[in-house]
Design a protein around this nucleic acid. Structure first.
Length: 632
DNA sequence: GGCCGAAGGACCC
DNA sequence: CTCCAGGGTCCTTCGGCG
């Protein structure tokens, strides 16, 4: 239960979600003038009052606000950036997506948002044009001071891993139903797909795509309903493995997690070979294996498939003996106190400290072995893993695969931001390592598309794009301008990205801040129906809250009109609430106001939600009477 | 000016 | 022929208030 919040049904890994932003900018072109397009532009625009024309040029290329036509609707197209997109007909796919969407209310709303975005960008370009060279100089000076601090505070002492299950939900379904293995399939419903297998991706079917469009792209697409209980089970098996390498690992969803291997790697150095030895189980092994729960039919089929992929992740198991001790000698990265990165101490939680890593490791290793099974005599392939980070991660992936028959990808780097990007690098069933030295980091960062960075989404990417920024190098080159155009928080985040910096301490699970329930339905507009729906939602929410023993001080309702416009209305109450009645009282009132607001017209909704949020956070951990762990 | 609450979004899975 | 989720977190902007 301590893992509560992470049970939030994750969407699904790498998937880029629907989006796209379909980089209209051709990389090369950007590179040619990437010296500082924005800089040049603003200088030009400054020296010549006409400047804007130059600037607006850049803006319009990034997001033509001209109606219809080709350029617009960049938000609906397919993101070709991600892995597994080789050799597929983007043109054709986008055409199909377009045709399926055109004219729908959804599409109209997207159009609206697109225009709004264009407006924001052009406002930004105007601001850019009004920046004087002096301002820029000053900004640069200031930013470079920050750069200095940031670089000085760089902490290369940690080894962070981001682990990501490959096409998780889809992989689980394929594992359990062999009939699906050679078919393009996706998990979800006709309304929305959570993820798709790699075969389906070839057709352009991706996560966060509505099922009916998936069907259009790939008429043979098999859509399997989600089965979260199953994914949760598998997920916990994976977590069992991860825990042994970092008891404080942080699951981000059912299918991905961050780990800090620093401590473990230290310990690993003195781990005898037998402790690093595993066996690739063969069919016979499985016959007696724990998975007895699975019916035989499935099991057999599973094995057939598994054999093929059971091989050790990545290359040579034998090259493993390279116990690179050279690694321990990197004193160049003097351990700095890393003041910038989050200061949470990973190892201070007094919670259930699961003994030591060694103990856990032994325990679980036993568990992984089929009962009463002796690998030595059963002829299982013996695998010995080395002691460096890459070897350990291979071992982790190997064990995950042995345990779940599913593959995972991983990224290893000195901080979370990089690790996350890395895990995507060799996506299905691969891993990528960035050693802990500045040069390696910068080399990696250099051409990294900003869009790949976690936290830079469609919108930010498009804004940056308008400034001629597509890679992290550009990000650095434009640091002065960025500091002037974006908020301090945003620009410092961008700056850190540009420097290859990221959190080096994995936050201990934090308390949840809100809880919500929302539902999409076919149009409702009669007040009685709306109140009824509201009631149901509040009921569900109250139950969820009570199940976790939580209360909320702010009750909000969320409404989505049939035109996809989203509204939220909230009210904070004097005392935290959790009961059905208390919540509904507030929600009903809020809903009533909305219904009245559009009075003669009916309020036509396609979705309604209800949520309870905790209030800010008390400044000092107020020692208010060991206050119940409620939202205040 | 600073903090808070409300509303709207961006982003992530 | 219809048909685009649901669970979160965090940031930004704005108006009110003391």
């Amino acid at each position: 239960m301590e893992s509560c919040w992470l049970e939030g049904e994750g969407q699904e890994e790498e998937e880029d979600m629907e989006e796209d932003w379909s980089a209209p900018v051709d990389g090369r072109e950007a590179q040619d003038q990437h010296h500082s397009p924005a800089l040049a532009r603003s200088t030009v625009s400054f020296s010549s009052p006409d400047g804007p024309s130059v600037a607006s040029d850049g803006a319009s290329s990034a997001s033509s606000s001209s109606a219809e036509g080709t350029g617009i609707m960049t938000r609906m197209e397919l993101n070709t950036f991600k892995a597994g997109m080789e050799g597929l007909d983007k043109e054709k796919i986008n055409k199909i997506i377009m045709e399926a969407s055109k004219g729908s209310r959804f599409y109209e709303n997207e159009l609206r948002k697109e225009k709004q975005m264009a407006g924001r960008i052009s406002a930004m370009m105007d601001r850019l044009a009004s920046i004087t060279p002096q301002q820029q100089q000053e900004a640069l000076l200031q930013v470079d001071k920050m750069v200095e601090d940031l670089v000085e505070g760089r902490d290369l002492s940690r080894t962070i891993v981001h682990l990501d299950m490959d096409a998780f939900y889809a992989a689980v379904e394929m594992r359990d139903n062999p009939a699906l293995r050679d078919k393009p399939m996706a998990v979800g419903g006709i309304g929305m797909l959570s993820t798709s297998n790699y075969l389906a991706r070839k057709y352009g079917v991706r996560a966060a795509m509505p099922g009916f469009i998936g069907k259009k792209l790939c008429p043979d697409l098999v859509i399997v309903p989600t089965n979260f209980d199953k994914y949760r089970t598998v997920s916990s098996q994976v977590r069992d493995v991860l825990r042994q390498y970092d008891p404080y690992f942080a699951p981000m969803s059912l299918d991905e997690a961050y780990m800090d291997l620093t401590e473990y790697l230290e310990l690993r150095k003195s781990l005898p070979e037998e402790e690093r030895t595993f066996y690739a189980h063969t069919e016979e092994c499985f016959m007696s294996k724990e998975n007895a729960a699975v019916d035989n039919q499935k099991k057999e089929d599973m094995l057939g498939e598994t054999q093929a992929s059971v091989k050790v992740p990545e290359l040579s198991v034998n090259s493993t003996t390279n116990i690179d001790d050279e690694d321990g000698s990197l004193e160049k990265s003097k351990v700095t106190p890393c003041h910038d990165d989050n200061v949470s101490s990973p190892c201070c939680g007094t919670e259930e400290l699961p003994e030591t890593c060694e103990q856990i490791a032994k325990d679980v290793k036993e568990k992984e072995k089929p009962e009463g099974h002796d690998c030595e005599t059963m002829g299982c392939e013996k695998v010995v893993f080395g002691c460096d980070a890459e070897e350990v991660v291979r071992e982790i992936r190997f064990r995950i695969q042995q345990r779940t028959y599913l593959t995972a990808s991983a990224g290893i780097a000195p901080n979370m931001m990089l690790a996350k990007v890395c895990s995507d690098q060799n996506k299905p069933n691969g891993q990528f390592y960035i050693p802990s030295d500045c040069e390696a980091i910068m080399d990696f960062i250099k051409d990294l598309p900003v869009r790949k960075v976690c936290g830079i989404g469609k919108v930010m990417a498009q804004q940056l794009n308008a400034l001629g920024i597509t890679t992290c190098t550009h990000l650095y080159e434009q640091r002065a301008v960025l500091s002037l155009l974006f908020s301090p928080i945003s620009s410092s985040h961008l700056l850190r990205v540009a420097l290859g910096l990221g959190a080096t301490r994995i936050e201990r699970e934090s308390e949840r801040k809100s809880m919500s329930v929302e539902r999409t339905f076919s149009e409702l507009s009669k007040p009685s129906e709306l109140y009824r729906k509201c009631w149901e939602l509040c009921e569900a929410l109250a139950k969820d809250l009570q199940d976790e023993g939580l209360k909320g001080r702010t009750v909000t309702i969320k409404l989505k009109t049939v035109n996809f416009e989203v509204k939220q209305r909230g009210q904070t109450v004097p005392r935290a609430v959790s009961s059905m009645n208390e919540i509904y009282d507030v929600a009903e009132e809020l809903l009533k106001m909305e219904i009245q607001q559009c009075q003669p017209q009916p309020l036509r909704l396609r979705l309604m939600g209800s949520s309870a949020k905790r209030r800010k956070q008390e400044k000092p951990p107020t020692k208010t009477t060991t206050l119940d762990r409620f939202f205040l």
